[in-house]
Design a protein around this nucleic acid. Sequence first.
DNA 1: TTTTTTATTGAAAGCGATTGCTAAAATATC
DNA 2: GATATTTTAGCAATCGCTTTCAATAAAAAA
Lengths: 335, 335
Amino acid sequence: MRKRVTLKQLAAELNLSISTVSKSLKNDPEISQETIERVKKLAKEKNYRPNALAVSLKSSKTMSIGVIVPDILNNFFAKVLLGIEKEATKNNYKIVTCISSESYQKELDYLDMLSYNGVDGFILAASQESQTKDLFEHFNDILKDDIPIVMFDRVVEDVYCDKVIVNDKQSSEDAIDKLVASGCKKIGIVSNIQKLSVGLERLEGAEKALAKYGMTTEILKLKKKDEFEDQISKFIEEYNFDAILGLDETSAVSAINAAQILDKKIPNDIQIIGFTDGILSKHSYPKLTTISQNASKMGEEAARILIDKLELRAERYLPETKVIKTKIIERGTTK
Amino acid sequence: MRKRVTLKQLAAELNLSISTVSKSLKNDPEISQETIERVKKLAKEKNYRPNALAVSLKSSKTMSIGVIVPDILNNFFAKVLLGIEKEATKNNYKIVTCISSESYQKELDYLDMLSYNGVDGFILAASQESQTKDLFEHFNDILKDDIPIVMFDRVVEDVYCDKVIVNDKQSSEDAIDKLVASGCKKIGIVSNIQKLSVGLERLEGAEKALAKYGMTTEILKLKKKDEFEDQISKFIEEYNFDAILGLDETSAVSAINAAQILDKKIPNDIQIIGFTDGILSKHSYPKLTTISQNASKMGEEAARILIDKLELRAERYLPETKVIKTKIIERGTTK
DNA sequence: TTTTTTATTGAAAGCGATTGCTAAAATATC
DNA sequence: GATATTTTAGCAATCGCTTTCAATAAAAAA
């Protein structure tokens, strides 16, 4: 069994003091070239690496970012995580990932734990519970401790921090525009995320666009307990839609299946557009036309903003809100 | 802006020594009840919490587990992660998640970084590159430093550590049995994971079962560059299969779509079974009959094994290999 | 009253690294 | 040859906490 080597041990073996060894490793000009080389040689031999804990304790910087996501099974969040990871790694930061499972309590616990574990900053999306119950003081508490937070996607209006969002409202307007342009007369909205800030935004955009064309907004809010396909096929039959806008990926894909059940041809009898360019969109039949939120880019952006803030600590600056542009990816469910 | 309070500050305010304060917070019998209460009162008021870094440095235990997964977008790994997270949290451990992106180099870097950051142990699935190139000394190096590893799913034979796997071979045998029992005469295998240990296992099981029924093994190894659906539909037409076993979820779902393209009715004209009970299986049309690996349970199990080892450090014990049982989840693609 | 016990608190070392300051040795200046 | 200057290396404090051991004071026993 190997033993991790410390400065102390190197010093002993070299007959030098700990400080000399430490300085040598940092190429301190105070130390003679000869000594530096001697030290480095042994350090390399023994595979010396500074104990990150000790360094952090001293410098009160851990080079780590706490990331809290509501649901890791959600492809969107997974992608964002990937983006964060990429950018963080590039800048020598590591990430500590926690999953709030949409629970306020877990979110709070993690915030607390991570802050006492010394993460340098947070990147997070609020849990559903925090959003619906309008709980956000726990975020402010962290900010008060001077630990920066960057929120993404599920942001909280009342928390004064950096944010990265997507122009959800505009996107669903665009989607409706597109559907109308291709001849749709009766468009239905299906949502499985009624309670989320993003769900509201998207709905608002759709309503606005629909109104513009003198169309009424018919929305189906999916109920967890029943089969989505059944709920949607009834909805389609009732109104005889020629297009469906799914406010999230699951709704849209379920709408595809519902259309199949009703034996409607996609995209001829009915067109479908969804949100979130996840794994489902690419594996449905036909493949789903969807609004991509550039999840990975969102993550990168969030990490970049946080790291900038961390490194440029010197100057206080105002929180910014970065809007990531969506793009519509046309596949088989639209004409 | 608030300031994190330390023992020193509490001590000063209470006119006590640091050690007394520390002991009081731990209900040390050496300290008088009166003092204990005085200390606790102020600590609560000031919201004192020990600095985790300092505690870790002292105890050389960080209460954290390094988790390395090859791909977080993969629903299976995400589920395992969820299981790990759940079990770890329950035992007061936190997890530091890294994503190797199937790269050997990243895997190595993370292993190195995390070990110097003092994680107490590792839970990981080998990257594809490590598996195909048969690279595993980096794992042994960690073990040499006396940091325990628990591998799951993608395990490496030559590394002597705890493992959690699934009875892949048996599962695909069972799947073939089931197909034959329901009358299939010509079964094709489709795989997108030829290079992985699990892919090999599953193939082996299928071959064995096929041979048992005097059937030949026809396998299609998917090529990334072409559309999966096209490759599969050609494959089906060529052999006129009445059943497909997809060795991974993507293959199986693509097979469903391929059948639709060929206008074959599922499950009457052709039956399909897949692996991994992920999100795709539930949203395909028809829904996919699949072999569930109990991903979340796998994660929990891995975490439990690791934590047991961590806490029971005392007695050396032999590495164990836990086999998680799969179960077949029947949905719409089989009779 | 003196000695022993017990109760209570504090001093100090240590975890591993960083860093400002000091001391000693080597070199330069007059 | 004596003093001033530069190199080079080490001391010691510090980060925040834990823990052993010593110290003091008060109470009990002799």
